[in-house]
Amino acid sequence: MTFDSREQKLDELLQSYRAACPDVDGGTNFMPRLWQKIESRQTVPFRMRRFAQAIVSVTAVLCMGMSVLLFSPLMQNSALPSYVEALDSMHQPEVMAYADMDEVDSGLSTGGEITWQ
């Protein structure tokens, strides 16, 4: 068989294949089944979207509440220490350490036993 005749035969075969295939219409249940599938697939994303919206709303409310608390004058006066207070609280352990050292010194000078209090 030559190349051209093979090509021609294949073309004819494919053309007759189209004619040999029956028309398919899907039947009367096609549309109801399709809508059933659409609705069943719609429910999951819809729930997810609603859940995500709820999460976003709650987060937004929490953020607003926190920022109001953080920047309110009441919080600044009572809860947050001033710069001087903060420095003071940082130096307190140092003062205590000096006090302890005084006690150690006094123990050495009297020849007694060194005791750490």
């Binding site: 189209r18 295939c21 029956p22 028309d23 398919v24 899907g26 039947g27 096609f30």
Partner: peptide, 20 residues
């Protein structure tokens, strides 16, 4: 579309499912 699918997949029993 169903006609095209039937010629593409060659299985009449599954044409409707693929079409859907």
């Amino acid at each position: 579309i169903l006609g095209t699918i039937s010629r593409l997949i060659g299985r009449p029993e599954d044409v409707e499912d693929v079409g859907q």
